[in-house]
Design a protein around this nucleic acid. Structure first.
Lengths: 338, 338
DNA sequence: AGCGCTTACGAAAGCGCTTCCGCTACGATG
DNA sequence: CATCGTAGCGGAAGCGCTTTCGTAAGCGCT
């Protein structure tokens, strides 16, 4: 197949009456070129409909403008929303996005990041909670540091302790808000079905909850299960023996699982038991009963991450903190009178 | 940054005692090389931990093994599930996946495909219904034909009439099954909230429904709205005046919207009105009431599509037809006695 | 044994770009 | 006015791979 037509950088250079080297500097924003010439070259390139060849660029040592996105599992609405935000923003900037799934294991996450870097990808976004496991986090930090040193841009969503720009959901604050909400309703014995305890997200939300609850002298019982609907079901079973009046799912998927398990046990929500979640995924409003949850702006977080990556780096890593919002629906209410 | 360590193809060639050319042929499966030598080279490459450089490959005129995936909107659970299947399978084969969103417009879809091709991507999967708009489909067909002629592999999920391998959900069959289900329950006046009527998926499902319904002499009222939860809400409003006893959402998102709108109008489901959907997205089981739906195996469709593009092409496009399954939950029942 | 044919392999020419290096021309400096 | 430093630009060397093209070796045939 002859891709005859596509203009190359030489064509642009020729048309603009400059050397190939200057044209390259003009297009890819290198230094050592006068603004006038650069502008002229860019105009000519525009006219010719020039599109840089990714592969040539990658080969020649430059970084490719593709954005790599690592999520745990794209089928999870939390990550799907983030991905949607990332792709939307990237697409507006003419950047393409490569997605890799870490399948919720840290080894895989690291492997996926390294695979992305081997492709000389210019920017990488890692979404999802970090792990408390410090040796693994250290390796990741090292990998990313080397990458950014080499001119790569990196950002993380929802994890701290990594030396790159980050978008941080207000997990602790959301926990506090939710804890207060339950305490205000009158709950004094609360259970939480947490995800794996070595996840930062889990630790932060639980700590927030505990803080919000303890002001009112309420107790928190923690059980840990996978961060999924099934995990929620298992957790609900654990907590059913525990004499609590409210169960918190640490994300909406878990909360939905909890709702299902309670329904199976003919326990009414919220009359007999309150159930709340985190995130406010799209369906939270549609389950039965509609779920009270702490909204985390996933889509916007994705967009923020792209914005960070497109901005030139500064010495200190930047952090964008996002807000949370308590969405009170039908699944939370006062504890039973008894 | 010195990426000193990474072995190159020359290194492999040298270590194996063959020429660069032979090594290339051995690795990228070219012809004109004896099986023995090829096997030997591959073994050496393996030992050295050789990883081909995408960009060099792309530059030299080959196609890059990356898989491009075009979906309408990754935030939609239907596409998220497909994407998850695609990424999972691709990852097992060591292929990376680039995702582009068409944002539900045909122009965008075509533009995204062309952007992908410009990157010399070796394989492309287009997910989502095709459009009845024939001129646009013709352009797409032409683009893909040229691509496959140049050695690219393409597959589509859920659309016909394109001259490439395809994975086809049983939309018509699912419609028939659902129509029969409602007819058997006793419904005689059924409404359907359809997506845009120029989508193949919509046409097929509606036709199936009508067929399944008409056997029992039932009538079908069609209204059309965007293929989203909000579209479902709007459609439900339309149909409320229409004296129907069951409303079909053409996908689960719409059905969930319908459920919400009926709840707002204090119409009980399924006592006063049955509601059913299509797809069986993860949350369909958790909404109130749990949604009766026709299950389409999205995740598996994604995997099938990857399998198709990894298989060498044959003259005739292949088709993998998938099954559907009626999942009866709580949202469908007999029509009110009146 | 000699002929042409096929097949396995090596040498070398790029693919389109970035970047190092060197040159020129200018303004600043003493 | 002579000298040095610097900014702007062009020449040219690769980046790692695929792919002609050419050659040598192996085959069956007359």
């Amino acid at each position: 197949m002859k891709r005859a037509g596509l203009p190359r950088l030489v064509d642009v250079a020729e048309a603009a009456g400059v050397s190939l080297a200057s044209a390259s500097r003009a297009i890819s924003g290198g230094s050592g070129i006068s603004p006038d010439v650069a502008a002229h070259v860019r105009r000519v390139a525009q006219q010719l409909g020039y599109e840089p060849n990714m592969h040539a660029r990658g080969l020649a040592g430059g970084l490719v403008p593709t954005i790599g996105l690592v999520v745990h599992e794209i089928g999870d609405p939390y990550f799907a929303d983030i991905a949607s935000g990332v792709i939307r923003s990237a697409s507006l900037e003419g950047r393409s996005v490569q997605i890799a799934q870490a399948e919720r294991t840290p080894e895989n996450e690291l492997a996926q990041v390294q695979a992305l870097l081997r492709q000389r990808i210019g920017a990488i976004i890692i979404a999802g909670s970090g792990y408390a496991d410090t040796t693994r986090e250290a390796t990741m930090a090292e990998t990313l540091a080397e990458f950014t040193l080499g001119g790569g841009r990196a950002a993380v969503i929802g994890r701290h302790h990594l030396p790159v720009d980050s978008v941080l959901p207000d997990n602790h604050g959301a926990g506090v808000t939710m804890g207060r909400h339950l305490a205000e309703l009158g709950h004094r014995r609360v259970g939480v079905v947490a995800g794996p305890l070595d996840l930062n997200t889990v630790a932060d939300r639980v700590a927030g909850l505990r803080a919000g609850l303890s002001d009112a002298g309420a107790t928190l019982t923690v059980v840990s299960h996978p961060f999924t609907r099934e995990g929620g079901i298992a957790g609900a079973r654990d907590l059913l023996d525990q004499d609590v009046t409210a169960i918190v799912g640490l994300n909406d998927a878990m909360a939905i699982g909890i709702l299902g398990e309670l329904r199976n046990n003919r326990i009414r929500v919220p009359e007999d038991m309150s159930v709340v979640g985190f995130d406010d995924i799209a369906v939270a409003a549609d389950v039965a009963p509609a779920l009270t949850t702490a909204r985390i702006p996933m889509f916007e977080m994705g967009r923020h991450a792209v914005a960070l990556i497109l901005r030139p780096p500064i010495d200190e890593p930047r952090t964008i903190a996002t807000t949370h919002e308590l969405i009170v629906r039908a699944s939370s209410g006062p504890p039973p009178a008894s």
